[in-house]
Design a protein around this nucleic acid. Structure first.
Lengths: 212, 212
DNA sequence: GTCTATACCAAGATAGAC
DNA sequence: GTCTATCTTGGTATAGAC
């Protein structure tokens, strides 16, 4: 009777922890550090709010862990790309690697949020170090020049903005969006559209005029 | 007796409004939309918290106004650059214009924060529209190709990140930062360092190791 | 036009049961 | 290991005086 059919399939705590971290990545990506409540993370992971706090100590520590994971995934992806097929140019290999990370929007969005929080003593420090680590990796271990590395990074930052602004959702209606996306993600749009269905979590009305 | 020597030199409300908006731009730039309290804005402008709310209705409306102003300044600066001396290349003219905006960090940082909040129904909508307006301006009225416009934009987004991460503060101690800044802001570093003294508002200890 | 006082709610964190 | 209940703080917004 007290077997597997428990409420919510009891799982090893490591696994549950991963689940919460994944959910946190998505939620932090959507609403930023300060804009995210531990309760929102809890609901997204199907656990209680106090349990989220219990697992990570504080919201700040949870975010740091999410940030750390995101940087790790980036590092891993780039190292794999660097070690990849030399037939394909390094910039293309790295570009594809970055593009693949796009599949989990939260990873790059959490980085973007962190990169804007340099004024925060603890998050800012972590973000600076992480960012510079990425830059050094690109400059020192990919064979690219400093200028190439910076240009590549710049493209990545624009990609983040495109992600952050949810421009994919306006792909069909706005010709300019279409052209921009075409140049930001050259020749990859078909894949992009598939991995970014217009899901719109709690569908805001896209029709209202903006504040201008 | 009841003359000019009033507490805090009474000023026309329009002027005070501008003052609050300027302060809000700085504070929002530092701590983001959700991370900023109306009280922090109030303290930075030397008025009371309820008065800030009274002036703008809600924190959200205040942010929208700040965002709107920031986009306006960008638009104005770019249009001036486009109309500028054709002897100097368009990219350099625009780059210098963008660089000059850097003097008031808050402008670009508020944009950056907004660009990460695309999921927010109201801020996101305003941010999307503003961003696309800028892209269209660059693409349609500067004589640049779509690709050039996107590349320029990418460089701007990297500049924002550099600003957001407060990398200038690590300029002296980190060689990699030095090289990166040199390529992000080519030949402009001398000016940059002057306009960005290492003020560090409430000086966090820069020594502690990050979360990694 | 600007302040003080305050109502009200949301959110992070803790205590303690199961 | 995970929940419910709750304490506590801090933050937006309102009421109303000056």
């Amino acid at each position: 009777m007290s077997s597997v059919t428990e409420k919510k399939t009891r799982m090893p705590s490591d696994e549950r922890r991963e689940l919460v971290l994944a959910a946190a990545t998505t939620v932090f990506g959507d609403t930023g550090y300060a804009g995210t409540t531990t309760d929102a993370v809890a609901r997204a992971s199907g656990v209680s709010q106090p349990y989220v706090v219990r697992m990570f100590g504080t919201k700040e520590q949870l975010f740091l862990e999410v940030l750390h994971r995101a940087l790790d995934k980036l590092d891993t992806a780039f190292r794999a790309a660097i070690a990849g097929d030399p037939e394909v140019g390094i910039e293309r290999r790295l570009g594809l690697a970055y593009f693949e990370l796009t599949a989990d929007r939260g990873i790059l969005l959490c980085l973007m949020h962190a990169f804007a929080l340099g004024a925060d003593p603890v998050i800012g420090t972590a973000a600076r170090c992480g960012f510079m680590d990425v830059y050094r990796l690109l400059r020192d271990e990919s064979g690219m020049s400093g200028q190439q590395a910076a240009d590549f990074l710049a493209g990545g930052m624009l990609a983040n903005v495109v992600l952050g602004l949810r421009l994919f959702d306006d792909y069909d209606t706005e010709p300019a969006v279409q052209e921009l996306l075409g140049t930001v993600f050259p020749e990859k749009l078909d894949i992009i559209r598939r991995s970014h269905p217009p899901l719109t979590p709690s569908g805001p009305s896209r029709t209202a005029a903006p504040g201008r």
